[in-house]
């Protein structure tokens, strides 16, 4: 059962990755990246999950507890993704303030021109 759930998260990763590559709008790219990261976190928890696991809180006489390790690790990677999102939004903002566009193709063209101009 959890295998099917993990499959769905991988499909979300694939969709997010295709969006990350093909969308031309930088903000859409960040949104796709966010989807990929979140789906990855979900995958990490689901892939070791067994149906019927209880939350590992409190010593009770229940036979089946979930593995606490992935849940603890996922907390770390959620914070890391928060940091990545904040910084990528910041960089996008600086680029938009400079060029007044979100289109990556245009930004790449402007950046190249500016570099050539400055260094020649």
């Amino acid at each position: 059962m959890s295998n099917f759930a993990a499959t769905i998260t991988i499909i979300i990763v694939v969709v997010g990755a295709i969006g990350l590559i093909l969308k031309k709008n930088l903000l859409m790219k960040l949104l796709s990246l966010s989807i990929v990261n979140t789906a990855t976190i979900l995958f990490f928890v689901l892939v070791v999950y067994r149906p019927g696991d209880r939350a590992p809180i409190g010593p009770e006489t229940v036979s089946q507890y979930a593995d606490p390790l992935p849940q603890a690790l996922v907390l770390t990677s959620i914070v890391i993704n928060f940091g990545v999102l904040a910084l990528s939004l910041l960089f996008t903002m600086v680029l938009v303030k400079r060029y007044h566009t979100l289109d990556l193709g245009k930004i790449e063209k402007f950046v190249k021109e500016e570099f050539e101009e400055e260094k020649s």
Binding site: K29, L33, V36, S77, I80, L87, L95, V111, K112
Partner: peptide, 22 residues
């Protein structure tokens, strides 16, 4: 601007890569 662009490129690719790692 070109530094910011290079940094953003690194950030996006490496974040995707670390998702694969995870």
């Amino acid at each position: 601007a070109y530094q910011i662009y290079a940094g953003a490129k690194y950030l996006l690719i490496s974040s995707l890569a670390m998702s694969l790692y995870l």
